[in-house]
């Protein structure tokens, strides 16, 4: 079975490592790609610059507060780009602010998750994301309408 491709857009190396740790003993074989800011995330998705060989991710884990271009802008661009709009975007952020939650859904985020402070809960969240998006739901890539 082909490994799942995950793009994590996250500027905090601590969070990147935690996510990696959580996915390490996950059920599915996965490739975690990391973009440290919004500009790089979009370059990855559009295979620009050093990302010409980048795979199309099956799911995007997106932090909101990012350098250069923040997560809301990345979300808005992804969801208005016909080439990218079908990729599920999971907003994974520290913010529990209701304004952020509402804005994210307005921009068509597929779900919004506040990062738990507790390690166990954080690991659970990452595993749940993996479980939900890769074993429960059917993705556009499964039905042949996804990426070529």
């Amino acid at each position: 079975m082909k490994p799942i491709e995950i793009l994590l857009v996250e500027d905090n190396p601590g969070d990147v490592r935690l996510t990696r740790e959580a996915l390490r003993d996950g059920k599915m074989k996965n490739n975690l790609h990391v973009a440290m800011d919004g500009v790089e995330a979009l370059a990855f998705l559009r295979r620009e610059g050093r990302h010409t060989a980048a795979p199309r991710p099956d799911v995007i884990l997106l932090d909101l507060n990012l350098p250069k271009k923040n997560g809301r802008e990345v979300l808005a661009e992804v969801k208005s780009d016909p080439e990218l709009m079908r990729i599920p975007v999971v907003v994974l952020t520290t913010s529990a602010d209701e304004h952020d939650v509402l804005k994210a859904y307005e921009y068509h985020a597929n779900c919004y998750i506040t990062k738990p402070v507790d390690l166990e809960k954080f690991l659970d969240v990452v595993r749940s994301i993996e479980d939900f998006w890769f074993t429960i739901v059917r993705l556009p890539s499964d039905v042949g309408h996804g990426p070529k």
Binding site: G14, S95, D97, V117, L119
Partner: peptide, 19 residues
């Protein structure tokens, strides 16, 4: 918002250490 992030790092990695 911004205080949460470093705090989460502190507690998460302490817990990871413990684990």
């Amino acid at each position: 918002h911004d205080l949460q992030e470093p705090l989460r790092m502190v507690s998460s990695y302490l817990q990871l250490l413990d684990r």
